[in-house]
Simulated scan of single mutants.
Amino acid sequence: MLLLLAGAHYLTAANATVLFWPAFALTRPLGAAGGDALTKPVGAGGLCWGTAWGAAALALVLVASVAFQTRRLRRRAPALLPAPVDRRTAGPSGPTAHLRPRRPPRHDSRTGQTGVAWIAVAVL
């Protein structure tokens, strides 16, 4: 099942968040089984390392994985992401894009005022 999720991640345009949660749910029992294999007695199929040594071994694997990924990213930085684009205008989208009005304010040819100015006058 994990291989199917990995294949879907790398070979399709499936949403990564949607693929993450099944992978997360599937790997939790694998982590528990790995921890049990380190701490159970030899007669029960484990290595009999005890809780402290089993936790230390799993912590070592975690630290080594983080160090490996950090070193890999520093050697070959990921490509820059494209600039965000506003779906309505197809122009650049900034952090305050949601605050811009949907349409430009109407211009009154009689007075030369825009609709926004009339609203400001009405509020005052």
Rank of each mutant, 00 (worst) to 15 (best):
A56E: 10
A56M: 12
A56T: 09
A57D: 05
L58Q: 10
L58A: 08
A59K: 02
A59H: 04
A59W: 03
L60H: 02
L60R: 06
L60Q: 01
L60F: 06
V61K: 10
V61C: 06
V61N: 12
L62H: 03
L62F: 13
V63H: 08
V63R: 03
V63L: 04
A64P: 00
S65G: 11
V66N: 08
A67R: 06
A67Y: 14
A67M: 13
F68T: 03
Q69M: 10
Q69I: 13
Q69G: 12
T70Q: 13
T70L: 14
T70M: 13
R71M: 06
R72M: 10
R72L: 11
R72D: 11
R72Y: 11
R74D: 05
R74T: 09
R74W: 10
R75M: 03
R76E: 02
A77Q: 12
A77T: 01
A77F: 02
A77N: 01
A77I: 02
A77Y: 03
P78W: 08
A79W: 00
A79Y: 06
A79T: 07
A79I: 04
A79L: 08
A79N: 09
L80K: 11
L80F: 01
L80M: 04
L81T: 03
L81H: 05
L81C: 03
A83K: 08
A83H: 10
A83Y: 09
P84Y: 05
P84F: 07
P84V: 09
V85D: 04
V85R: 12
D86Y: 00
R87S: 10
R87C: 10
R87G: 11
R87K: 09
T89H: 00
T89M: 00
T89E: 01
A90K: 09
A90C: 11
A90H: 06
G91R: 07
G91K: 09
P92Q: 15
P92G: 15
S93Y: 01
S93R: 14
S93E: 13
G94T: 15
G94W: 15
G94C: 14
G94H: 15
G94V: 14
P95Q: 13
P95I: 10
T96A: 15
T96G: 11
T96I: 14
A97G: 13
A97W: 01
A97M: 08
A97C: 14
A97H: 12
H98T: 02
H98A: 13
H98F: 05
